[in-house]
Design a protein around this nucleic acid. Structure first.
Length: 414
DNA sequence: TCTGGGGTCCTAGGACCC
DNA sequence: TCTGGGGTCCTAGGACCC
């Protein structure tokens, strides 16, 4: 049994190039919320030395000099494109595990397994021709090896975007791969490995497992097992539901008013509730957080969180908004300037499995219809078209956060 | 001057119980 | 005066991923 990791190259940039073909062949980057950080780079931008997640101000000069197109992110659009890519993949094999916005594992069995390379090439061509999104495909027996294979598929042009890495092969490629680039080995893990003299993926694969048991944390031990073809992270096509829904953007400025912080929390709670409903779930707990600017030199970093339990699991926006406002009031400290409000919906359950309180059925039924109508309008006309005016006002209208202009050019010397 | 956001999982430590 | 130890559950913090 083999897994094929299909990984969209430079996904956000590739999406922008579908919308605006003049961006092809040029250095392009996409920025995060509030234009703070670089979150996607074209190959041309990577070649200029622009790093992932670096603050934009640190590369702004370079972008001007080298005519880099700088775009604000449009996540609604990227989610929509992602949905199209995944839907297309699902027409090509019966078993697909969507693992992130730009990645999915395909389970290859039967005829697909026999002609792996040719089949993966056809998947890649199909996504490119139908949607204009370039794909890399890495094939192997475990997820960690498939990730490594897709790494090679991107780096080695002769592979034409498809790399099949059978267990116990590929010494040459793995010896050229930094241990830091193995999936599951972060900066901390890489430092641990470096102290033990492990610099490459091949060295990691060959590491003595008894010794690893004694000196390495679980994540690294799993990486070693998976590099040797033993599965620690199984394929899971059954749509596993998420366990939390979080909305937590930073403000562009700061805010010290309880009322405005509550309004922001209300707005984020409504957004999170809509996401949760769209996935058929309800929550039992609303967690809120208030945090100051971690980079401020005038004020020590401060972060507080609080939880509010709901009477019963719900997806009803007014109840969730009320809980969020209450939570914020409970942790607010006067005379503190906050930079970030977070709302996390926790203890999620499937709404179709929810135990109904018989005495509230009628009211629930009405609430359900109300939320359905609200979601329907907002999905057709844009989120925030209809809000619950009695519950909150949108902080965007108060100028706490800037209005979003999707896909707008932040900087384009041309 | 300007530093993201949304997830999962692991782990250590405290509360609590017997 | 001496004053256990093991289990479970929960939580916060952190590592890691994209």
């Amino acid at each position: 049994m083999l897994l094929a990791l299909c990984d969209c190259n430079n996904f956000f940039v590739s999406c922008e190039r579908v919308r605006d073909p003049s961006l092809q062949g040029r250095p392009v980057i996409v920025l995060s919320h509030n234009d703070g950080c670089v979150v996607a780079r074209s190959n041309e931008a990577k070649a200029l030395g622009i790093g992932m997640a670096v603050p934009f101000f640190s590369v702004k000069g370079l972008c001007v000099n080298r005519k880099v197109a700088v775009l604000g992110g449009d996540h609604r659009y990227y989610r929509e494109m992602s949905g199209r890519v995944m839907a297309l993949l699902m027409t090509m094999v019966p078993e697909v595990e969507v693992s992130s916005i730009d990645e999915a594992y395909l389970l290859l069995s039967g005829p697909h397994e026999e002609k792996v390379s040719a089949f993966c090439g056809s998947v890649r061509d199909s996504v490119w021709k139908s949607l204009g999104i370039p794909l890399s495909v890495g094939v192997s027996g475990t997820k960690t090896l498939a990730k490594a294979a897709s790494h090679f598929a991107k780096k080695i042009p002769e592979l034409n975007g498809v790399c099949v890495l059978l267990p116990h092969t590929g010494e040459d490629m793995l010896s050229g791969m930094d241990a830091r680039d193995v999936w599951g080995v972060g900066s901390r893990g890489a430092e641990t490995l470096r102290r033990s003299g492990v610099k490459t993926a091949l060295k990691l694969r060959e590491f003595d497992e008894d010794r690893a048991e004694r000196i390495f944390p679980l994540g690294i031990r799993r990486a070693i097992a998976e590099l040797n073809g033993r599965t620690c992270y199984p394929f899971a096509s059954e749509g596993a539901r998420r366990k939390t829904v979080q909305v937590a953007p930073s403000f562009s400025g700061q805010c010290g008013s309880l009322e405005e912080l509550q309004d922001a929390a209300a707005s984020y709670a409504a957004e999170a509730a809509a996401t949760m409903r769209s996935e058929g779930q309800v929550c039992r707990t609303v967690q809120v957080g208030l945090a100051t600017d971690p980079f401020s030199r005038n004020q020590a970093y401060l972060e507080d969180t609080g939880e509010v339990s709901l009477e019963e699991p719900t997806d009803y926006t007014p109840d969730i908004v009320r809980a969020a406002r209450k939570g914020v009031a409970g942790i607010f400290r006067p005379t503190t300037m906050y930079k970030r409000v977070s709302v996390i919906l926790k203890d999620l359950e499937r709404s179709d499995m929810m135990q109904m309180n018989l005495f509230r059925d009628e009211k629930c039924e009405r609430n359900l219809r109300l939320m359905k109508a609200l979601d329907g309008i907002n999905s057709r006309l844009g989120s925030g078209t209809v809000k619950l005016g009695s519950q909150y006002t949108d902080p965007k209208e108060r100028g706490i956060t800037p209005a979003e202009k999707p896909g707008r050019k932040v900087l384009d010397p041309e």
